[in-house]
Amino acid sequence: MSLSRIIAVVDKEIHDALRNRYIAMLMIILPLLFAAIPIISLTSIRQIPASGEPSEELPPGLARRLAGLPPRTQLEVFLASQFMLLFWIAPLAIPMTIATYSVVGEKREKALEPLLATPVTTGELLIGKAIAAACPGMALSWGAYFIVVAAAYGIHLSPPAMETLWGPTAWVQIFVLGPFITLLATLTGLIVSSRVNDPRLAEQVGMIVILPLLGLILAQSFGILWLSGTLLGFIALFLLGADALLVALAVALFERETILTRWR
């Protein structure tokens, strides 16, 4: 495994992605969107009285967890915890688009054959592509997260809600789980991309990875589960294993011969 070849692949992929108008547009619009939604939502609930009777509109499970907090704080904590999940999804769209296009697109441009004729190994190629696909989405997602945190400080979010947004649990979600999930999505995209010859189909199939995350959002919003530190630790371990498995799977499923000789 050569680090310099992996870096060369990363360099190529990032330069290529930055010159793709569709991806460039996504890179501008998505972070703005993912920063704007939480800021607008958290600002809009400022008119709810800071103190009073607890809200009866929260799902029973969630209401139990947030019992004793004033209604506005309850809502702020609830929203902040949901937005943390949003930041799991936020970095996925861009990497998925880059990853799904990377093999199919290269094949379409007929650029894959000369690339495979170099000393680059399948592992180096796929790791390089995965890193390159994951990095821009992660960076932009983190950028959006920092904007939201700054805005939360600006609007004087309640301490429990602030702790949900900016604290050890939040950091694990953003800086550990975020990259793991992004890598998972990217590798899924790469695997699909190396098995089909239509980038759109690859993107649609690859998006399946988002479904379990949507399930988590729904489960938390109905109070069925609460992402505690312990649960997050288990999820992180699971994702780490899944990522390692997917790297091996991606290398095994990347059939140079089939890609070169069967795809038209």
Partner: peptide, 17 residues
């Protein structure tokens, strides 16, 4: 493969670069 330079039938470049 370092010993070999290859020009495929269709050159195939990264068009945007």
């Amino acid at each position: 493969r370092r010993q070999i330079g290859y020009l495929p039938e269709t050159p195939g470049f990264w068009e945007r670069l």
